[in-house]
Design a binder for these strands. Sequence first.
DNA 1: ACAGAAAATATTGTATCCAAAACAAATTAC
DNA 2: GTAATTTGTTTTGGATACAATATTTTCTGT
Lengths: 252, 252
Amino acid sequence: MKSNVNNMSTLPTSAPPAAKGNVQAWIYDQIFAAILEQRLAPDTKLAEDTLGEIFGVSRTVIRTVLQRLSHDHVVEIRPNRGAVVASLSIEEVRDVFEARRVIENGAIELACQRREKNDISVLKSLVEKEQAAFEGNDKGAWIRLSGEFHLALANIAGNETLGDTLRSLVSRTSLAISQYETPGQSACSQKEHFAIIDAIDAGDVKAAQHEMTQHLAECEAKLDLDEQENGTDLRAIFSNVRVNNEKSGNLI
Amino acid sequence: MKSNVNNMSTLPTSAPPAAKGNVQAWIYDQIFAAILEQRLAPDTKLAEDTLGEIFGVSRTVIRTVLQRLSHDHVVEIRPNRGAVVASLSIEEVRDVFEARRVIENGAIELACQRREKNDISVLKSLVEKEQAAFEGNDKGAWIRLSGEFHLALANIAGNETLGDTLRSLVSRTSLAISQYETPGQSACSQKEHFAIIDAIDAGDVKAAQHEMTQHLAECEAKLDLDEQENGTDLRAIFSNVRVNNEKSGNLI
DNA sequence: ACAGAAAATATTGTATCCAAAACAAATTAC
DNA sequence: GTAATTTGTTTTGGATACAATATTTTCTGT
């Protein structure tokens, strides 16, 4: 009842259609995976009717799936205006990384207390798979496996609540990457992952936390998070400009 | 755009019916508040039809609301068997408190960095309201305000993601209390809240974290979390008993 | 030709309807 | 009388129909 391998919080993969009755879960996974693997870009409209036709179900079930996805912060539902693939503001991306630092360092503390013999080897084999995907240029698999490593870590911590929270944050990190990544910058994070594993293996909480903090900071640094022309800031950028329209006609 | 007072993650209160169009949000708040204030006990069945009649809407909107509540882990939806007020296992309660320790200690670190002049007084007035509710024996308000304090703290930390996560955890804590509280044990947590505030006011991260850890541990200790006869363990408890039915007739 | 208004179209929100599953009751077999 | 099966009722899951709200297109006046 308190094993480390059951009920693991995992990321959706493009699994087979599943048995009957699970259509809903299957569609959920399909859309989720498409977003995480960046086949659906942020702000893409997700019309209920269209999706219903694609998956051969009515709007009803699409609607519940979209609601679940919006709870995961992976799609955004705007009242009366439908759902779109979520788009994170720079502020939100910073928050997500900060939250991850807090939660994952907490998870490390617990993982060091509760780790069992073969936990470390499980982690290592995950990172090896990740490395293979990276070297094979399978970006989708790489992003997914990279997240899977962090979830496996939370899993060793043995706290399902914390694991679920992290799952949501990891998904949003993938979204953030697809939105803000800088072209050539996909460096190998596996080295950092191995460093974290080694510190945990040695039972050195502080060191592991330091590596994790470092790792997350590097991930964030690889993104292009400089404030630039967003729709909302357009006004500020052109604050010096004064145009002759009827409302500001008395100025200048 | 980065104020500490806007977009605060808050607990639902029995607010007025709201404008038109927001019926859904209103019903959500009504049910949520009823659960948090313990007017709806864990495992209470929440039939779609009944709720629809009560609130004068169709099952469709009730279903949406129940789905949202289940995302918050406040109700549980069992496939083909409807929704009930969520009931936490002892394991889950422990996880929730552990997760809160991790997240709230992280929030304290951030709050100490980012606190502004009147943040402390806001916290203090919240705890004073809490004390009033406690002394006035208004248990519903007390539980809500007690949670509100923790959310205000996360709010000062200025990380909305962390705040949302904590909101969910605080709700589940209320549920845990209603399920596992020991009769006479509702001691005043206000003293501990004030201690946390003072430490933050002094900018002493370590001390504040220590107080928080202590506070959460005391809350958890007030609950009756001893393993006892759960339905699942009945079999183990009566493992010595052998009854004469056709299947075990050959034994004894 | 362009801006604004108005009509047409498309999409979401809600209610209702039907099918499938779960639950409760009653009947039957032993 | 008890256990199991069958029947009837209730409740959920999903599809469709209709209403309300956006969005797009067309039309009109300057």
